[in-house]
Design a protein around this nucleic acid. Sequence first.
DNA 1: GATGAATGAGCTTTCATTCAT
DNA 2: AATGAATGAAAGCTCATTCAT
Lengths: 227, 227, 227, 227
Amino acid sequence: MPAKRRKAARRSEILAAAHQVFSAHAYEDASIGEIASRADCVEGTIYTYFRNKRELFDAVLADYYDRLIADIEPRLQAIRSTRDRLYFLVARHLQIAVDDPGVSRMIIREARGHRDYFGSKLHTLNRRYSQLLLRTLVDGIARGELRADLNTTMARDMLFGGIEHLVWNELGRNRRIDAAANAEQIVGMMMSGWAPHERAEPVSRADEIADLRERLERIESILTQRR
Amino acid sequence: MPAKRRKAARRSEILAAAHQVFSAHAYEDASIGEIASRADCVEGTIYTYFRNKRELFDAVLADYYDRLIADIEPRLQAIRSTRDRLYFLVARHLQIAVDDPGVSRMIIREARGHRDYFGSKLHTLNRRYSQLLLRTLVDGIARGELRADLNTTMARDMLFGGIEHLVWNELGRNRRIDAAANAEQIVGMMMSGWAPHERAEPVSRADEIADLRERLERIESILTQRR
Amino acid sequence: MPAKRRKAARRSEILAAAHQVFSAHAYEDASIGEIASRADCVEGTIYTYFRNKRELFDAVLADYYDRLIADIEPRLQAIRSTRDRLYFLVARHLQIAVDDPGVSRMIIREARGHRDYFGSKLHTLNRRYSQLLLRTLVDGIARGELRADLNTTMARDMLFGGIEHLVWNELGRNRRIDAAANAEQIVGMMMSGWAPHERAEPVSRADEIADLRERLERIESILTQRR
Amino acid sequence: MPAKRRKAARRSEILAAAHQVFSAHAYEDASIGEIASRADCVEGTIYTYFRNKRELFDAVLADYYDRLIADIEPRLQAIRSTRDRLYFLVARHLQIAVDDPGVSRMIIREARGHRDYFGSKLHTLNRRYSQLLLRTLVDGIARGELRADLNTTMARDMLFGGIEHLVWNELGRNRRIDAAANAEQIVGMMMSGWAPHERAEPVSRADEIADLRERLERIESILTQRR
DNA sequence: GATGAATGAGCTTTCATTCAT
DNA sequence: AATGAATGAAAGCTCATTCAT
């Protein structure tokens, strides 16, 4: 069916154009006119695909989150240790900011400060995404790999909020973010805290070896597979 | 000089009105008209005190930060231990969100997502404020109250970003924030980390371990070149 | 021929849908899109049956009037006395407003106020309909059942206009109209007039003179002062 | 104060322009742009005087009704007999259509057919105006100059509705309406009804009476040349 | 210094209509 | 005959900013 194919293609074109424009400008400063001209159609056409500006905006984000969650979920479950899962989630989250800083800005800017954010579609998507971390934390406690008295929601806030802040600062200074390295550091810092402590040692040679090998291989695989 | 007094008073009235309006609405949704009517003057008058809307906005925040820093700085220096200083800073930061959620929203919303935030007046103010934390961290390391290898800027990001996230979530759900209790928890979590405390120790070493560690550290040093 | 049958059926479906939509909304607020979706087809299809929106609108009314006149005409001729005929016409006219207030609104709204109503199809239909009354009046005079000097067109205006006004008021207040009762009253009022029946006679010459003089001066003053 | 003077003048200019445009086009077809250009200002200016299009429309009509009622009320009270009062009201009403057919169209078109007419400002104005007639009728019954069993609201509907219809027909045919002559006929018809009746005769006659009657009838015959 | 009327560019949204399939 | 995607013009409305008084 050529009409339907065309329609689906158009929708994607508009979505892509909207992605670009909303990435570049704040919601109110992004104009339908610019989106239309980038999608190579007239403003009216957009309204045959999306009821209004907000719905288009939401569709861009929904699209993004859907792909993100679909990418993360299966890979997350394949990872064993809590530390590695956290590393994966943090690195992936940072990677968003590297690959698509615009969408980070969209989310940061529109999620925050909007009177009616809570209950919005964006809020729902965000919750769905942050559940991935929350579940990892709860699971980690159950396995004994995290402190039993860890306040999970607060931990989630610290982690995501912290990353956001870090990303924002780095992007603002036009620095490239190294997702793997930063993730390693962030997880390290969160796991062991700021206080100097009587460092725990590996019990046996075997354990120490295994630990080092694991860290090493993780890093090496990242450095080679980097997209 | 009554004219000057009047002029200063007018400025303050406008600033106060702008504070209200910018607290309640996002920058683009806040209108000069509303600010004027709240300041009991006409729009034109505002332009005799501030060149344009942005400048007025900046003035509101500058005013706020100035008072904030003036309040914090002396009290911070009177506190001895690093932990107590951190507690004070976190609690004070949370208190802003309790006392004046509008200004939190202003900062969160306008600091983030603006193309030209970096280098802006708001950015400068923010840096000045966050220096208070950074200095506390550096000092803490020097005193041996914090780990020697703590990445201070990252720690700062995690703390401020995390608090922002937490505040945002709580405000959004219309929950009252207990600054003291939350500060205690946050500092506790950051100081001691997420991992269970008693860690197993490696007893001995061997060639294989030395080799792996060498490779590992080489790579990690590369990755750690973020400052 | 099934194609033709289908075509006729489609036309009726569209007409019925348009009837609904034009009943509910003013001409400009009625959208082809809504008509199409109610007729279970797409907008384009409508344009294969009707050249444009106006033509569709006219077709709806033509359809209505055709059925109305076909209903009234034979029954009217079966009635003998002028008074009964008037009663029948008034009651039937009121009944439209009861049964199908939407079409009343359509006619009232679109007949009036449109620059190009006169000469329009709607105008022609309306004339055809109002001829029924006009002929009844002329006939009534011929039979001696109405005053010989009755100005028939003016009488028609008063009757139809009056009914329209009455219907509008009642519908607006969401009152149900009792067609029979109102028809009885209206016809009664029109036949016998507003004046008390036993006409007061001028008692004296002086009174009669004063009366005439008054009427005279009033008219003269109007004729000279006319703006 | 020149600013205030200017402001008042501008308001009048805009009102006058709006009067013209709303007279010429139906509400939805009248554009703010045209009003603005006729008022020799930009669209934005209009919005400093009127909140929106509807409010401007209402203001035009309110202005009209205010002046109308102010004109009619005192003159009506100076007239003695019910018949003369009716004549005056009808003639004045017809005169509107002669002097300002546009406003007649506005009222007819917008009063009718609007979902939310009842309770609107226009409805209130209309009621205030039609009270003048209603009070005249009630008063006429009290004086014995109208039938005791007259249904006043129905009489009002017949009169105003009838006039509206008549005006509409005449205007549509581009005929000039003779207010005095038509008013005389309309009142005559409404007072005495359509049925032939036994007319009371003046008993005696005299020269003066004959003379007056002659003059009167000559004039009236001229006025009565409407068909 | 204060006023406040005027500006005018810019925005989102609607919808009758067309036309290639 | 039917589709339905695309059009594009036009509309109402907002608001930061200016400037003569």
